[in-house]
Every structure is written in structure tokens, then in C-alpha cells.
Design a protein around this nucleic acid. Structure first.
Lengths: 343, 343
DNA sequence: AAGCATAATGCAATCGATTGCAATACGCTT
DNA sequence: AAGCGTATTGCAATCGATTGCATTATGCTT
């Protein structure tokens, strides 16, 4: 029993059913040109033997692998995305959606994968299409995919100039909501912690500026502090800001919840009361945000809808349809870190 | 340029090199039966055209897909693992290690995948082997893989009775270290928050009991509280414990950092000082643990070594070698949540 | 020059599922 | 019974890379 038995092929199933291989193949696929009785018979025999067709043989013949490659794209110099709960959320949804649609999912990260995605995944028939998560700092490989007409979609921020479908949250509006909320809580001098060299963060910075201007506050460039996507970076950057005598800060908008938590830790360590002295808002609504102390006000991204859309748009594209960029709504989730009871 | 050009095949490369397809194939693989000059010539032409052999054709002929399926196994009724940073850490390492070894990684979750892993992944040649992450509550599919002789390894807790290789941290020792630390900090009555129906957590409970007994403290069954792997479950369970008049609690050992953070939130909300009144230790050392307030004492699992070992053992097995269960060392990382300065 | 050993290469079969088209079977109408 | 139309099935080719074995080429020795 320990020894792997010889794996059955379609030929074995056909023999047991007393039909040819081609009939067995068509019957298994429920092709109506085959008589219903024959179909049922073949399918039963296959089920009895837990038979699955050889996927590689099928892929070679049909020129379709029924596999999607998902690539997590980030900078070699940042460790952020790899442990970001937001990322795992969206990966889980993608995996489940692909499974439901009969596709397998290949996963890799751009950290160690310097290969040409087109030839490696698409031309060599490993995958029928690609989902790229993240934009890094404008990776040329994404442009190459688009130029080559490879079916793919990207999770990130659409600027409107891309030649490929981008799906992502309305970063600009999310940031605007967050900063408007901080202003409403009485904040006058709000720092922005995030790396605007990333398109998504750049859009959040625009929303930050929108909210400031709408309140008649002139944005100060010195309050925009490039920060990697880790709690550690948020902590160190906030410590630096306090040392740099940005002591008149009364608000922080962080480009991610991880950054926000690090910043909050630095503030509390300096005896600064959150939110009374400095209020904080993050972005993502990861599961932990409700359970840190104080709980974190944040902008919620709908990872579920995002994952579903990525899959739906890509499969539409693969099936010959069009894939369009889409902007997902965001929502402010207010919690302790920003609520000053200043009604 | 937008239109996908016809994909080159090995036959095209062979024609350009002026050799047969079999020579081209052998040359591309650097087979020494082919003259070095011929090899170099073929390889150069392939590189000039960014040529990759058709993966499905190769798999069919060689009977090897060079793909590993990674399955995240958890209960349908728990949402835990899907957003656990610990999980993403280990997935990232596995992905990178497999890439480095020339393998692709398929990812799926057991939530929506009820298929027979043997026939779906192994018999149908989608994958050469499997890595299963987690044990859930003794999933029969794992036993079936072992019985069928499918090459796989599992991340979890080894009880010593498994017929397959299990790789995981020394959960028992980790818990023992954590609880011994709490006792050293003066804790007398320590709750255990975790679901012992999971083997890993059961081992942690054994370590918890070991430490209590070593200190001459009799373990109280009422202090073991089944808790799902979420911060929310930790929060609710701790609130319940406080309501149940477990007010004489002075320590909490949580089976994961997420649970610990939820528990800490509940304590702080009740005005209970951490660690002065109740000290807390978690398990995992996720990135956030250092940045919550107070920072969380925890048991560090070496996800990097774990991911590497999972891959190494599985590939050894696939190559005809033996794969052995391995226990990884753990380490207590002490931080604010448990340090009472009670020297 | 002939013979032998070794190096290098190519032919053809193989892997297992699918599918176009031809052949066969069946049912109905005249 | 013959003819026609439709349903059902099977043959054989195909997909593209790999590899066993035969063939050819080359170099060395006698």
C-alpha cells in the first residue's frame, strides 16, 4: 500500500468502459456528441477510480495550462510586503477564486525571480495569464508584459496612463477621508509617513494634500517623510521626526497600518498621548488594527472584492474579452487612535 | 507589437543552429555528449531569442513537472491562518527556496479545496510533491497521502507517531520557556489561551504544564481556554475569563501572538496593568509584536530555517532519498509585556 | 590503407490527452 | 428494400520536448 501503484491513464478508463480513448475523453468532458448513457458510464468508472486526466498531456494538446501565475512585486531593498497581513488576505481570496474557477495558482516573488516573465510563464506555457501584486518602483517587466500582449492584471494604483488593467483601492480618496478626519479632530499639523516613489503611496499623498487644501491648510513638504512599509520604519521615522523638533505635530497619516503602529509606539514611548496630543490614522485595516492599544483608526481596503476582481478581469481577458482598470471604494474606520471627543 | 508573435519552439532553435532537435535539446541542457562548441552555439541562439522550452511538453516527456504544491491546511470554521503574518513569512521562504532550486510553487488553501490531493496533484502530474502547512484537526487527506506514498512534508508538530516527515518548532520547549519566564516574573496563576485540539497547540500545552510542575504548581484544567487563532478570539476569551471571575489570574500564555494581542487589549480595557498585574507571553514573534504597546514577549519560531528545511527535505525525498522529521529550536524574546523588574 | 575505439549526431518512438474528419450505426420516410 | 439524415463512435494525427539506439564522423594504431 505504501508503494505507489501505477497511475491510471485515460486508456485504462476507456478499456474498462469498452470504448475508445477519444470517446472516453469526450464522455469525461460531458460532450453531448456522446450518448448520455455512455457518458454516465465512463464518468462513473473514472469516479470509482478517482481518476484525473494527466494535466501535462492535456495542457500540451489544448495549449492551455489552466494555471495563473501570481507575482508579488516589490523592491529588493524593502522587506515590507513579505509579512504584510494585507497581502496574505488578498492572496487567499485570489487562491480561492481561482480554485473555484478551475484554475491553479503559481506563486512567486520578484525578490528572487529576475526571469523574463513573458518567456518563463507565458511562452513556455506554464501559465495562461499573470496577476502582479504591487508596483514597486515602476518595474520594466510589467511594461514588457503589456507590450507583448500577455494577459495580466496588476493590483496597485492606476494613474490612467497604463496600457494594462490596474485594479486597486481609491487611494486618493482614502487618504483624503483620513486626513479630513484628522482635521475634523482638530489636527493642524499633520505628517505623512510613506514612500511616494511607490505609485499607490503617491496617490495617497495627493489625497493628503487635497484634504489639507480643502481645509485651507498649505501642505508643508517637510511633513512628508519617506518611510518603508514596516512597523520598524514607522517607529524609527517617528523618532527621527520628534528629534528633528517636529514637536508641534498633532497628527500623523501613515500610508499603512504597520507604519502607523510603529509610529504610535514611538509616540507612546516619548510620553506623547495618543490621540490627545497626536492623533494617528493608518491605511489597510489589517486584523490587528482593532486590537492594538489604542486601537487604530484606518482606511479599509476591500481585499475580498479586490481579489475577486483581479481574477474576474484576468479570466475575462483570457477568454477573449476586455479587462478594465477598476477603482475600489474605501472606507474610514474610526477607532481610538484619532477620536478626541472634540464634538 | 501588441499582437503576440508566434512562440518559438525548440524546432526553430534547432533550425537556426543547423542541428537536429535532439542535439538542440541536449545542448540546451548542457549534456556533455554534445560537443562544447555546438552546445555554446545553441545556447547563445536560445538566449538571443529569450527562448524557454515548452514546460508542458517537457513535463509530459520527463514525467516531472518541477512544481511543488503548497497547501495551507486549516479548519473551515476558523479564519485564523489566512491573515497570520507568521504564515506569510514561511510561504515567502518556501517560494524563494523553490525558485532557487528550479521549482515552481502552486498555492492553495484547504478551505475551498476538498479535492483528493493525491489524484489532483500527484497522479495527474500537476506537482512532483506537496508541502502541507498546518495540521488542522487531523485531516484524513494527510494520512491518505502517506498511505499512497506521495512525497510530501508537513509543517506542524510531530508526535512521533506519524508515518510522514513533520517539520516544526519545538512547541513544547517554547511553551516551557515562556511559562517558566512568567513564573520567574512572579506569576502564580497562569491561563493558557489556545485550542488544544490542534496538535501544535496541544504540544504547547504540554510545555505549559511542564513548567508549572517544575515550579511545584499544579496545573488547573479550568485555566486552559480553547481560543481560535485570532486577536478577536483572544480578546473575547479574555473578557470572558475576567467575567468568570478569574480575576486572580496574574499571567497569560497565549498560543499565538495574535491571541496575545487580543488578550492584552481586553486587559488594558479593564484597567488591568500589563505586566504589573497580569503578565503576557505570546508565540510566533510576528513583526508587529515588537511594536504594540506594551511590546509583546513571545517565543520566536525560525520561519526562515523552517521554510528551507521543508523544501530541502521534500526535494531529498523526491530525489529518492529519505525525508526526516525535524524539530527546530525556539527562543524566548522578552519584552515589556512580561518584564516586571522583579530581580 | 585498414581496423578499432570513441565522439558526436540524428532518427524515430514516446509521453497521454484531445479533436478533425471519416466511418458506422440507427431511425425515419418513401 | 432503398435512400437519406442524423447520431454516435473510432482512427489517426497532433501537441513539443526528450532519449534509446543506430549511424556517422573522427582520430589513433598497426
Amino acid at each position: 500500500m505504501k508503494q505507489a501503484a501505477k497511475v491510471m491513464t485515460l486508456a485504462d478508463i476507456a478499456r474498462l468502459a469498452g470504448v475508445s480513448e477519444s470517446t472516453a475523453s469526450r464522455a469525461l468532458r460531458d460532450n453531448p456528441v456522446i450518448n448520455a448513457q455512455t457518458r454516465q458510464k465512463v464518468q462513473q468508472i473514472a469516479a470509482d477510480h478517482q481518476f484525473k486526466v494527466n494535466a501535462t498531456a492535456r495542457s500540451l494538446r489544448t495549449q492551455k495550462s489552466h494555471t495563473i501565475a501570481v507575482i508579488i512585486l516589490f523592491d529588493a531593498k524593502t522587506q515590507q510586503a513579505i509579512s504584510d497581513p494585507f497581502l496574505l488576505d488578498i492572496l487567499g481570496v485570489i487562491a480561492d477564486e481561482l480554485t473555484a474557477k478551475g484554475y491553479d495558482m503559481l506563486l512567486s516573488t520578484s525578490k528572487t525571480t529576475d526571469k523574463d516573465w513573458r518567456s518563463y510563464y507565458f511562452d513556455s506555457k506554464r501559465a495562461d495569464g499573470l496577476i502582479v501584486i504591487g508596483q514597486g518602483e515602476h518595474d520594466a517587466r510589467v511594461d514588457q508584459l503589456a507590450a507583448a500582449g500577455v494577459p495580466f492584471v496588476l493590483w496597485g494604483a492606476a494613474t490612467g496612463t497604463e496600457q494594462y488593467p490596474v485594479i486597486g483601492s481609491d487611494n486618493r480618496q482614502g487618504a483624503q477621508l483620513a486626513v479630513a478626519h484628522l482635521i475634523k479632530q482638530g489636527c493642524k499639523r499633520i505628517a505623512f509617513l510613506g514612500d511616494i516613489r511607490h505609485t499607490e503611496i503617491e496617490m495617497r499623498y495627493l489625497g493628503y494634500q487635497d484634504a489639507l487644501r480643502a481645509a485651507g491648510i498649505k501642505p508643508e513638504p517637510a511633513l512628508q517623510l519617506n518611510t518603508d512599509f514596516t512597523a520598524q520604519a514607522g517607529y524609527l521615522q517617528t523618532q527621527q521626526a520628534l528629534f528633528d523638533q517636529l514637536a508641534s505635530l498633532d497628527g500623523i497619516f501613515a500610508a499603512s497600518d504597520a507604519i502607523a503602529m510603529g509610529a504610535m509606539k514611538a509616540l507612546l514611548e516619548h510620553g506623547i498621548k495618543v490621540p490627545q496630543q497626536v492623533a494617528i490614522v493608518g491605511f489597510d485595516d489589517i486584523a490587528m488594527s482593532a486590537y492594538c492599544t489604542p486601537s487604530l483608526t484606518t482606511v479599509k481596503q476591500d481585499t475580498h472584492a479586490g481579489g475577486q476582481l483581479l481574477v474576474a478581469e484576468l479570466l475575462s481577458r483570457i477568454d477573449g474579452g476586455k479587462a478594465a482598470s477598476q477603482l475600489l471604494p474605501v472606507k474610514l474606520v474610526d477607532r481610538q487612535s484619532s477620536l478626541r471627543n472634540s464634538t
